[in-house]
Structure formats: C-alpha cells, structure tokens
Design a protein around this nucleic acid. Structure first.
Lengths: 330, 330
DNA sequence: CTGAAAGCGCTTACAG
DNA sequence: CTGAAAGCGCTTACAG
C-alpha cells in the first residue's frame, strides 16, 4: 500500500489541496471548520507530508550536516570529544527543529562525495569538526555558498568558528606546573597540522621561555598510545624531567601508563597535566589535573553560531575561556 | 546565482533533458559523441543533480538513519561504544554509497519526531542502536514497513539484530574468576531494561549457582560513576568479597577507583573483570581483564545485515562470539 | 478565506 | 539511440 498523498487527504476531506497544505503548515488563514475536517482526514489516513516533495518546492531541507574530518586511522572518532561534539550538536540542532546528517570525511574520495552531497542541495548548512590546516574541505564548502561554521579554529579565514582558548589554557597549565616548583617541564604535542595542537605547543614554549627554561618536546597524535610512546621517548631524552604537559587528556592517560611502567611516581617524581577534562580524567590513578573550558559546550555554541548565521547572515568567531582543574597528578 | 539545472545543461549541450539524464546516470544506451558533449556541458556549468528532485521521482533517498536511543542523561552517547558504533556504521554505509542521517532519540517528543521523519520518506532504512526493552520505537519503526535492523538484541521479535554473545561472554568472565580461585564474586549490573544487561546478569547468576555460591549484585547504569557507587555499596554489603564482574568496562573503571580509594589492592585483594574491551581498558591501573567480541565490529555487521535485508528481503539475527582478554586486574 | 494552476527539477515509460 | 511528455507530491502566488 502506498502512503497517502495530499491529494488523497483533500479528496477525503472534500476540500482543495491548497487548503490541506495550509492546515498542515499551520497557516492562520484557514476557517476553523475546514481545519477540523482536514485534521480528521489527516488522522484517519495517517498522512505525513512527503519530505522530498517539500524540499524540492521550498528549496530547503531543514537538514544540517555535521562533517567530521576523520583520518583513516580513526583518530578523531575514537576520541571522547567526538562523541560529546556529536551529541551536543545533535541536541541543539534538534531543539532548533533541524535534522542532522552525519558525514565522516576521511579519504580524498569521501571529500569529493561531501562536496557533491552539499552541492546537490541535501543540506541547508554545515558544521565542520576537527579540520586540520591542510584540509581542502573548508575551502570547498565555503565556495558552495551555504552557511558553514567550524568547531575549532581554522588556519584560514574562510568561516566563523568557535574554539577554546587553547593558548590561554596551555599557558595556565604550564604556569601551574611552574607554581608547583617543577624545574624540567616537558610536553607531549598533538599533530602539528591542527591549530589546537599548534596553539598549545606555542603557549608551552612561550611560557617556558619567559622563565629561561628550554623546551622538551615529543610529538603525539592525540591518541593514548601516542602519549605512551611519547612519554617513553621523553624519559629517554631527559631522565631528570619532573613534569609533563600533555596536549590532551588521552595522551596524558597514555603518559601515566608509561610512567607507571617506568616506576616513576605521579606526582612525586613527575607531575602530569592534561587538556580537555574528559570524564576519564577523574578516573585515572592518580586523578588527572587538566584544562577545562567552563563555558561548557563548544559544540553547542558552534551550532548556535551556525543558527545565527542563518538569521543575521554573518557571525563573529567565539573564543571560550579555559581554566585549570587541579587534581592529584600535579 | 542559482545552481544550474538539467535543463540548462541540455540547452548548452544542444540535446534533450532525457539524454543528459541518461549520461548523468551512466546508462549505456547513449552515443559516445553525445556523452562527450553532455559531460563537457556538465563540467563547464558545474552541474550537480538536485537531490530532492531525484528523491521525489525515484522514491528513494539513498539515506540510512542511525537512530540512537539516548536517554536525557546522555548515558549512551558518553559511552565509547557509541562513537565506535557510529563510526563503524558510517564507514560501512559510505562504502555502500549510502548517506547517514544521525538521530538521537531521547525524549518522548523526539521519538515522535523520528516517526514523522521516517514516515516522511526521508530514509530508505534504519539501524537502531541501544534500544531498551520498553522503548516503543522499534515497534513504531517496524510498522512503517521500511527495512530496519537493531544493533543489539531486542526483547521482542520485531526485526533482525546483531549482538555479542552476552551470555557466553559473561559466563566466561565469571568462570575465569572461579578458575582464579575467587570465592566471593560480586557483580555490577547494567540497567535491567536493557537486554545486554539482563543477559550478562543472568549468566553471572547461573554460573555462580552451578557452584553453589550466592549472587552479590549491585545495580549500575553503564556509566563510570554508577560503577564507582555500586562498588562502594558492594564493599559495604560484603566486605569480604574478593572479586567483581562489572557488566561493562566503564563501570569497571569506576569500581577500580572506589577500590583504590578504599585501599583494596587489585588484583591481590579484589579481582576485577569488565566487559567490552574498550581502548581505555588497556590503560587502567592495573590494566583491566575484560570480555571482547573478536569478530570485531558488531556495528559493521549490523549495517551488512541491513544491506542484506534490502537485497534479500529477509535476514537472520547474528550472534558474535566473545572471549576473555586477561590482563592484570584478575 | 478558498481553489485552480503553475512549477520546483528531476526520471522514465513510450514513440519514433 | 533520442526526444517529447507525463508525473513524482508538494507549495505558492494569483484570482475570486
């Protein structure tokens, strides 16, 4: 059995399709008795308007794409931040009556698919998540002309974004370690093609330089295992280090495991500070000192930015303040 | 500037719309020279077919909904399993040329929205994630007549599903603790309206009963904090317990924290076993013994099940084998 | 306030 | 192999 159409409802109610359409869309210029009759017919037939037909004629889809730049290795989507972002954004979009289309753009081919998808008019706007500096996707999407925002600062000035104050947060983290009297403070950096990693590393370097200390840097990719590996390398390079600032909590968790295996006590021998304040940070042994963005949901704000873009046609980037949450690891 | 239409391409190429359509859709019955001309016009104009128009006429959308039953508290989406499921499913669907529509259905209102959304023909099929036994959504969706599968066994027989062998896995976990010589084995259960939690608890009870031991049960909701709380309660109830089987890794992580705070050594005083083998299980102190489904991606299989449903019209439930991964916590 | 008509941008029998 | 025509199911000026 086919689904009933507007035509069927009109026939049953004995009115024109125009009137049915008006009732369905809640237009005020409909006589109460007609509204009644139509609503009854709608209920009796279980009518639901066809989405494709509606999209075609209104030229809108009420759908927003969440486009996540997830490398083949799945670095991004294994991060608890990914789930938080997707959830918070979904909620906010649902509250605004929008549908969510999730697109994981990993390979170059899938990037092409994304472009086609957007160009086909499937979505009214898009939110980019976790784009690295070299990614061609932001430029592609900006070219399509639909409203786009980025969750996370972009290297280029293609669209408004919402980000944590990475520089401020990392500065506070390193300052905290200095305040604790730590002398040899190392860092585990994120992948340097990502602005967040760049900012956190730069802040680390600058803060140490102000005190005349030298930087001790190992490179990770924001995963636990990379943090563990980087920590091992740092201990090799400088066995006397007494503190490490990891550019995110996952790498800090990896570093904690390496320190435990190496017999270093935390925080007695080595203090550890992370970044993000994911839920797991409260459950490490010892619980992890880290940097949190207290304004809460960057993702929620990103969605709001997108919505304001629809309303006002333009929007300014947003930088959310960050703060150190001191626990027992430092 | 409007986007170019099929009509514009036809005009530029000097052929009919039919021919352009055939070229776009790769139909073989097109003369090579016409194909050339059309493709050139497509490129010159940057033509991309309008998705809504296509959906309307073909009565298909090439879109699959991933519908996640996420309670207001966000229990599900904070779970690393959520991210894994979404990622694996997205990949598999993309490989099959499908778009992904992500729907988080928490409140009763949003369930209604989901029904409308599906009834509006926005998706060709759906994959349900983490439905509890009382959820009306599966029945709703089964009624719509579109192909639907469930990631996780359903209490009712409404659609095919893919699940881990929860009973087998939990049985092996408890057996493992018995083999280690543990005498008083407690469990932290998941929420009992979820089939996975029911199965794991039942298997725990049955395995212990076979040895004449009594069950020691505390209730959690699959979150870390609930595991921590439940562990505290278990220690109150039975200070002499020497092992605990948590129904998922997150609760096991919470239990580890409580044990640490209570001064119990793991595994010397209390052995701990989890379930799922999430990445974090390798990073706890000590690393967590847990149950893994080695066939890997339940989500990938669920998508494959859905695709086979499209092809064959029917499909059988799939149960994936599980195995214990022994680490240092037991 | 209501209805007939046009049109959104495609695909797909049907003739030729 | 190609094109003219119908039609997918809606919304929206336009008359009345």
């Amino acid at each position: 059995m086919r689904r009933p159409t507007l035509h069927a409802v009109a026939a049953r109610a004995g009115v024109s399709k125009s009137s049915v359409s008006r009732v369905i869309n809640g237009e005020p210029t409909v006589a109460p008795e007609i509204r009644q009759i139509v609503l009854r017919a709608v209920n009796e037939l279980g009518y639901v308007p066809n989405g494709a037909a509606r999209n075609l004629v209104t030229q809108r889809t009420n759908t927003i794409a969440i486009i996540v730049s997830d490398p083949p290795a799945g670095l991004v989507s294994d991060d608890p931040m990914f789930a938080m972002v997707v959830r918070a954004a979904s909620r906010e979009l649902e509250a605004a009556g929008k549908q969510v289309s999730l697109v994981l753009a990993g390979s170059p081919e899938s990037r092409l698919r994304v472009e086609q998808y957007v160009a086909a008019g499937h979505v009214d706007g898009a939110m980019l998540v976790s784009m690295d500096g070299a990614d061609p996707l932001p430029a592609m999407l900006a070219r399509t002309g639909i409203p786009v925002v980025s969750h996370g600062r972009l290297a280029t000035d293609l669209m408004p974004w919402v980000d944590n104050d990475n520089v401020g947060g990392a500065t506070k983290a390193v300052q905290h370690l200095l305040d604790r009297g730590r002398q040899r403070i190392a860092t585990i950096s994120g992948p340097l093609d990502m602005p967040a990693a760049q900012d956190r590393l730069a802040a680390y370097r600058d803060t140490l330089k102000d005190t005349g200390r030298r930087s001790i840097v190992a490179l990770g990719d924001f995963t636990r295992i990379s943090g563990a590996d980087a920590m091992r390398q740092l201990l090799d390079d400088d066995p006397d280090l007494d503190a490490v600032f990891a550019a995110n909590d996952l790498m800090a968790i990896g570093a904690l495991r390496t320190l435990r295996e190496a017999g270093r006590r935390v925080p007695d021998d080595v203090a550890v500070v992370g970044f993000d304040d994911i839920e797991a940070a409260s459950y490490t042994a010892p619980p992890l000192t880290t940097v949190r963005s207290p304004m809460g949901d960057q993702a929620t704000r990103t969605v709001q930015l997108l919505l304001s873009l629809f309303k006002d046609g333009s929007a300014e980037p947003v930088l959310l303040p960050t703060e150190v949450v001191v626990r027992e690891s430092s």
